[in-house]
């Protein structure tokens, strides 16, 4: 295991930000910490980096107990949401910072900076100030700066959070490729489930200071441990006491399948290739259903039509617990 967090609890005053959190992250993996805002993701990441200290519990990095080590002794790379670039230094100086602190020979520093700037495609900007870079470029620079010291783990706190949707998507793919090349154990925080599902080898879902579930993207999507994880990873609706995804509901215009629930379409919304329906069942439940446009047309349904609903075969369903989403 590369990072081992055991029973970490962190309080701010009376507020419990992390409640007895334990996670183990294997070497060389790209892990996402996923969860809603205020869930404690940044706090956990900062405790791993040593930027905050846990009230109790331990942090082990690459086999050494790091719980009491100051950040500069942990050999972690940290990338901040708002870049935290050194404004008064050029791009090259920013990247060289960690190496200069470590008193590496000048020639080595130069070589390494050159390599890294090539890696992040910023070679032609080496002598600019960060203020002359775009947001995406700044973040790539921050990444190069963190990688320069050859950290044993790389921690990224919502690295693409402040970027627009398109750049975000590009950088996300690029991070995945970079990780495949560099293979450093990487943890990144996000509250975007799509980002996590797309890039990560493993996802840790954190909510209210607790770990809700740990698993691969497929595991999380197909076997969510609870309602919260399920609803956080995608849309969820409820049909006669179970939670399931709206596109996992079979819709029929006649009661053909056994156990079908009868209802009337109260709203119908066409978005691109899909049709979103709100069905008011005879039990008084409002159920969301998504069907393809073609399917809707073949059924000949419209607002006010009576329909029958059944969970599709092989759908991910879990018993409904507390009302979420």
């Amino acid at each position: 295991m590369s990072i081992d967090v055991k029973n970490v609890t962190k309080k701010f005053g009376d507020f419990v930000a992390l409640d007895d959190v334990s996670v183990s992250l294997p070497k060389g993996q790209l892990t996402a910490l996923l969860g809603p805002s205020g869930g404690g993701k940044s706090t956990l990441l900062r405790i791993i980096a040593g930027l905050d200290n846990a009230d109790s519990g331990s942090v082990n990095i690459e086999g050494t107990d790091a719980t009491r080590l100051p950040p500069q002794k942990r050999n972690v790379g940290f990338v901040f949401q708002h870049y935290a670039v050194f404004k008064h230094m050029t791009v090259a100086k920013n990247v060289a910072f960690g190496l200069e602190i470590r008193k590496r020979p000048k020639s080595e520093v130069e070589r390494r900076v050159k390599e890294l700037l090539e890696l992040v495609h910023l070679s032609q900007f080496a002598h600019r100030l960060p203020s002359q870079l775009s947001g995406g470029q700044r973040q790539r620079m921050a990444l190069a700066r963190a990688l320069a010291v050859e950290p044993s783990v790389l921690l990224l706190d919502e690295p693409f959070g402040a970027l627009d949707a398109k750049v975000r998507k590009e950088l996300r793919d690029w991070l995945r490729r970079l990780h495949d090349d560099v293979h450093v154990t990487t943890v990144f925080v996000t509250h975007d489930q799509e980002e996590a599902l797309e890039v990560a080898d493993e996802i840790v879902v954190i909510n209210n200071g607790r770990v809700e579930q740990v698993g691969s993207p497929d595991q999380l999507y197909d076997e969510p441990a609870n309602d919260f994880v399920m609803s956080f990873l995608g849309e969820v609706t409820h049909l006669s006491g179970i939670s399931l995804r709206p596109h996992d509901i079979e819709l029929e215009s006649a009661p053909r399948l056994a156990g079908g629930v009868e209802g009337t379409i109260s709203r119908m919304l066409r978005i691109g290739f899909e049709v979103r329906l709100t069905v008011l069942t005879v039990d008084g439940e409002e159920v969301s259903v998504v069907v393809s446009r073609t399917h809707a047309r073949s059924l000949g349904i419209a607002e006010g039509s009576t329909v029958w609903l059944t969970p599709a075969a092989g759908a991910t369903v879990i018993p409904r617990m507390a009302a979420v989403g």
């Binding site: 950040p71 500069q72 002794k73 790379g77 935290a84 960690g98 010291v149």
Partner: peptide, 8 residues
Amino acid sequence: QAARSLGA
């Protein structure tokens, strides 16, 4: 903090 995480 970035400086600290880089070993300063």
